[in-house]
Write a protein that binds this DNA or RNA. Sequence first.
RNA 1: GUCUUGUUAGCUCAGCUGGUAGAGCACGUCACUUUUAAUGAUGUGGCCGAUGGUUCGAAUCCAUCACAGGACACCA
Length: 505
Amino acid sequence: MAFENKFVQLRIEKAQTLRDAGINPYCNNSKRNTTIKKYLNVNSDIEHKENKRDEHRHYTVAGRIKLLRVMGKASFLQLEDESGVVQIYVARDHLPENFYNDIFKKNVEVGDIIEVGGYPFVTGQGELSLHASEFRLLTKSIAPLPEKFHGITDKETRYRKRYLDLIMNADVRKTFQIRSKVISLTRRFFEDKGFLEVETPMMHPIAGGANAKPFVTHHNALGIDRFLRIAPELYLKRLIVGGFEAVFEINRNFRNEGMDATHNPEFTSIEFYWAYKTYKDLIEITKEYFLYLFDHLDLPTHLPYGDLEIDFNRFSEVPLIESLHTIGEVPSEIVNDKEKILEFLKSKNISVKNGLSLGQLQGELFDEFVEHKLINPTFITEYPVEISPLARRSDINPDITERFELFIAGREIANAFSELNDPVDQYERFKSQVESKECGDDEAHAMDEDFIEALSYGMAPTAGQGIGIDRLVMLLTNEHSIRDVLLFPAMKPIHNEELNQETEV
RNA sequence: GUCUUGUUAGCUCAGCUGGUAGAGCACGUCACUUUUAAUGAUGUGGCCGAUGGUUCGAAUCCAUCACAGGACACCA
């Protein structure tokens, strides 16, 4: 039952006491006229004034009480709003008669949201504070906050009750402010380059554009199942067919797969498509994009990440096959021989699915021996065609594609290629994907005939790229779990809630 | 999915090889008009994650389950 906790009960009683005294514990006519940060900035000159105060100034701030130190006839409290923290000095004799003793001391506590009016002064300890002459409760908090020193550290509680995490941990708020900036800067970067932001469907009749298991939902009115999108790619390319030459979309994708430190079932990406360009142009714009982010976020280009230091002045480019040997230390004589790769993998005790093609085996080698070693930004180029069903073939070598993936700190951050715009080739590639699907690869791409038809009308030569925003934010904020850059990461429901839901129905 | 480590007061944590629970913060009461995690005194507060088992006796040992963290697998 709600509110049964004894501390909550006590606070509810206090709220009632306030009502009985004619004070609304949930009033909404706040008179706040400045933020705490502005208050501190505007009054930074006070310490140089006579008596270190200016009784002619008057400000009204509001926020949550984070700390409360009652010392007889006067009290100090730390008041926090979104912009910052300020110390408030509350003295009995500067407030209406009996207010301090009967209302403030007895019924106001840590967690409450209040409004305070008064003048600026600097305390004996040298802290710019606000001397209260008006004090008003705005919102009575009836649930006690976590411990003032240790705060809340239990990860499960932090993710399930993110609001508490945000109240208690300023650095968590900072992380999400940076996340917001990254998205905003990304939007501005592409808009400034003439890209058009578009919104394409989240519910797809065919889950395409990536290899992944989709979530399924049902549309009652049409009586059909829909898939939550695993990627917007095929819709964005339809727009290129339609004549838009530069489009992007920043939004969620959904993949019905495992969860771990780098995977959440819903995640945010930007995908952008650029007509009359190739993947080589994408390498250039990607470098430019990173510089833009670092510049506007004021980050060092030697970025610390855990124990690593990533050098964003050094982007390198390595073809995938070459990387197997030069980075992964796989003997170069085996990398183009299926049987030898299988032998090699066996000798390293690595088991792979039966019936993989050469390109797929090269992909396995890459994942196993190269990926985790790519710390500084590295564009791995020229992916095998078998693992790139939507990418354009190289004119020089039809077994490889004009594609790259960008790796930083051992993780894939972006995936990009010159788009396959030959409808017949695309049709054949889908067909071979469908064969894989029938052979048990439940993540292989499905046939999308409507997309083939769209391509048939002609899609200008185009380059397209996807960037995982969550992983990017992890890098930029030095976070090592995707849950720490998602406000509300996916969590299993706790058992009691499940039971309640069942019994309520 | 596998392995592993957790789950004790609102929060942060103790609790040994079994003898029916402790601290700090918070909260109540008292003192205190310049504190900085204020201080001093005093008090309240627990279905020890859930269910079974072993035992005279379980927070503690065993099993199963739930949730979480980590690692691995899967996710090209």
